[in-house]
Nucleic acid binder design. Structure first.
Lengths: 165, 165
DNA sequence: CAATTTTTTCATTTTTTCTTGAAATGAGTG
DNA sequence: CACTCATTTCAAGAAAAAATGAAAAAATTG
């Protein structure tokens, strides 16, 4: 094993364990492994880390790090933080459950529900084209979808509240 | 285009639209496309469908259909239904939101939370091995993870309640 | 209970998704 | 404002996930 220069310092077993946990959470949420790794590393880190350290410790490419950080920033799971006397931006993990959930729903869930509104409208139009024999049952199905959609929209603020603790 | 024999009858635009919607929901939940297709087809269908029809209408392989149905049954999104005078099992979609969410959490979410309990215990052990200088901050991190875990466990029954409507 | 039909399983192939690495862009500094 | 260092972008390659198809198992029926 060479090139110890670029990897800052190896991860401790403790860090590995925490990172592994977040890798699994990421895959549960349908996010790339690297995203879990990055968040996990920042979560255990006692201080803000620059991208170079992330790349070095996790042994991932600059490209992955850049993309992963962008995604994490997009829903507020990671924040850039100014560090005095340092040229590069450093990053910290957001650890407030409420903020994490809220950002995640806002950016990853809500757009789909929004999209659902359009789809339901389109379904109503397709419904009108249907031969009368099928119309009745089809309408029941669409009605149910609309109730689900409504419920989902109502649930968002409630989930946010739940994590207020 | 040949082999019209096996595909029962083509999907109507309305059906296609509903199926497409469920395909997206499936991918949102990290499930294979085919699972969304199958559920979607059963959701629009006015009556229970045998596997052969599912395979024919969706143009998927028997293997996919069998595996997809198994997954869907595993969390109660689809139920086998006896149809008089028919040899094969037929399937219907569960359409109660409450039942769907409950089954999904029970089978797909809860096991991970359960697993989390073990991981946290393991983390506590790794923590003990840490050099004193790092121990304090590491303990804070683990403590926070435990609070998250606790909150998540508390949320399950509440989510179930939400969908009671 | 043998023959037939249906379903499941699983190795292989196909498709999709993720990661990489290098070039382009952007930012900071002397 | 030119030079250096840092970040982003994106095409190509690698890895992971899903679908297929055929063989095995299970169930049904005459």
């Amino acid at each position: 094993m060479k090139a110890a220069a670029s990897q800052s310092e190896a991860l401790s077993p403790f860090e590995v364990e925490v990172i592994d946990l977040f890798v699994r959470v990421a895959s549960l949420l349908g996010m790339p492994r690297s995203v879990g790794e990055i968040y996990g590393l920042l979560y255990v880190a006692p201080e803000p880390l620059p991208m170079e350290t992330i790349v070095g410790k996790l042994q991932i490419s600059l490209g992955s790090a850049s993309q992963g950080l962008r995604l994490l920033r997009s829903f507020g799971a990671v924040k850039p933080q100014y560090v005095a006397g340092q040229r590069r931006d450093h990053f910290v993990a957001e650890t407030e459950l409420r903020a994490l959930l809220s950002g995640y729903f806002q950016e990853q869930v809500y757009p789909h529900l929004q999209n659902g509104t359009g789809r339901l409208a389109s379904l109503q139009r397709s419904l009108a084209e249907l031969p009368p024999a099928q119309k009745k049952i089809a309408r029941q199905r669409v009605d149910r979808l609309e109730r689900w959609h409504k419920t989902a929209l109502e649930m968002l603020p409630m989930v946010r509240k739940l994590s207020e603790k």
